[in-house]
Design a binder for these strands. Structure first.
Lengths: 342, 342
DNA sequence: TTGAAAGCGTTACCAG
DNA sequence: CTGGTAACGCTTTCAA
């Protein structure tokens, strides 16, 4: 006997479907006796309310659609965790979709979510996304959308992201305060927002501390481990190495580790690394790395909180910047000076 | 103008709702002219089909509910990735729920999924789960359920998990083949299935290779980093240290690293570590660790594939064991003998 | 080629 | 306290 519906209960009890519905929702104009009989039979015959059938009336699904570009990127699971934390406490369900960094999949996912009449959409744009066409469709649908981490700016939607520039400034300030002025930067790509922002923060900090900027110590590239590896090699080719390397993300930092290990340097005796990362990562490499923790869990929470406010029309569009915290690893022991001049 | 429905289109075009429905689904008993007018207006006025309203008829939601015990455990995101990979290629949507290792939340999640009339449930049980009551409810509902990774055996449901015993045997065989016979084991807890299975595989391998088992080299404990740390300390207290330590999971391995670093030993010169882990983890620590890769992505794929077969009644209940692959890190350079006899 | 009517599982309104 | 009826958005069957 599979799941039964209210009609089944009504027939068996020889009462109307309306009465069953009210009894199950514990309405106060139904006698205790009827309620009991309905509930008992519901339990016995395996009645389970049909979520979507009810939602058909209420015009609300209590469901939020989430679009993640890449779930195997260790950053996003923590964001999801933050989202789910708030969702669970507020009675929302989560439909998870993954765009695999593809614009077409992202579009398909968004349309599906609209079709499912989610109450709102939380989205981090894929690396490929250029067109804003789908987002205009979302706007017309009047379903609130909140961009998290990877945002589309100037579209008038709410956004939540890490304050990368301030965070980088904070991290580099910390390094300088520790007495080190020779700081190189593997900056990733300046085409990407986070690349630009983190580099800007690095420059901010040097300027504020009246340290002259050495262009040859700012290496552009990508954000992968390989880029970190080659970036370090490039730095090496410049003659004098900095004492601390600021990696724009954790993958780059790993690449630096690879290169450093290869040439037989010791961390932190010969050279130190600081990087953007998040707690899980720090946990694995700790205590060998000082990071600025971008706290994805917190980001997810804030994004979801903002989402709920938008649904309840308590807040209008806004752009939230989340501050990041420094986590200090052992790598910031003052390194010996290293001169590689050839 | 928010999302409109078929009635809106019907009224505006002065045709019936039935015609609109058929035109939109491209039925072949509707004229091209009508179809075009319907489609154009649908596009213009922002019509988006109502997923759940259609499903109300078809009795199918093309939705799979997934229950994950802990999404911040780096294992599960990869499982989800594998699930989504298959889901996307088969037109299924995923509702993600997290039980946070709590039995009550797990139960609540399952009931919600049933209420949403998912076509199937993929579940890894929480650490707390003892009662099988909810699972009986699922059985009565005739909605297929597949347990992945953390299974409830002997309940007659399908299960998919790593063949831990064979994997451990393979890993230890590999170590022995490399010429090392002194292998200790930080085994986690024997109350937990994976703990038992991995330890059994370790013993299998030693026996097969006619190496006597030294009980003092098998340390029970938990599965956390702290357990790894203290486990190593315990080993140290026994006098002679083994040359290779087999950690039952990656967290334990990290703890061993901590302890080893603390006493100033070098890996792999003084001692080596091999462990159960997965690719992401190996990627971070590589090349310092040899692991048996439990390939969560593959596990997720297999689980989802089995799910789809169950839904289509192509396969009856079955228990799948996934083999794991060795990934070789540098740590298996034959270490120098270390004698800590006090 | 089109449309009227019934139905999917539920809730809301109003009458008895 | 109970129940008939309409409605939510859509599909399907059958008749025109």
């Amino acid at each position: 006997m599979p799941i039964v519906n209210q009609t089944h209960i009504a027939k068996k009890l020889k009462i109307s479907r309306a009465t069953v519905s009210k009894a199950l929702s514990n309405a106060d104009d139904i006698s205790e006796g009827t309620k009991k009989r309905v509930r008992d039979l519901a339990e016995k015959d395996n009645y389970i309310p049909h979520y979507h059938a009810s939602n058909l009336q209420s015009k609300r699904t209590n469901t939020i659609g989430v679009v993640v570009p890449d779930i195997s990127n260790s950053f996003f699971p923590f964001v999801i965790d933050g989202i789910m934390d708030v969702a669970q406490n507020s009675g929302y369900h989560i439909i998870l979709t993954v765009s695999r960094e593809k614009a077409d999949l992202e579009k398909k996912n968004i349309l599906n979510l609209l079709s499912m009449r989610v109450d709102g959409i939380l989205l981090a744009v894929s690396k490929e996304t250029r067109s804003t066409e789908v987002f205009e469709k979302v706007r017309r649908s009047e379903i609130p959308i909140v961009f998290y981490d990877r945002t589309m700016d100037n579209l008038g939607f709410s956004t939540v992201r890490i304050d990368d520039r301030a965070a980088a400034r904070k991290l580099i300030d910390f390094v300088i305060q520790s007495g080190i002025k020779e700081i190189g930067h593997l900056a990733g790509s300046s085409i990407i927002g986070i690349g630009r922002d983190r580099c800007a923060g690095y420059i901010d900090a040097l300027k504020n501390n009246k340290i002259s900027i050495r262009d040859e110590w700012i290496i552009e590239g990508g954000f992968t481990r390989m880029d970190g590896y080659h970036g370090f090699k490039q730095l090496q080719g410049k003659g004098t190495l900095p004492k601390v390397i600021f990696a724009a993300n954790d993958q780059i930092a790993l690449g630096v580790y690879d290169a450093v290990r290869e040439i037989g340097f010791k961390i932190p005796d010969d050279i130190s690394v600081v990087a953007f990362g998040h707690h899980d990562f720090a946990n694995v490499l700790s205590p060998s790395l000082t990071i600025i923790n971008v706290n994805p869990f917190n980001l997810g929470k804030k994004a979801m909180e903002l989402m709920i406010q938008q649904i309840n029309k308590q807040k209008s569009t806004q752009n939230l910047f989340i501050p990041a915290e420094i986590e200090i690893g052992a790598s910031l022991c003052i390194p010996k000076a290293v001169d590689l001049s050839i």
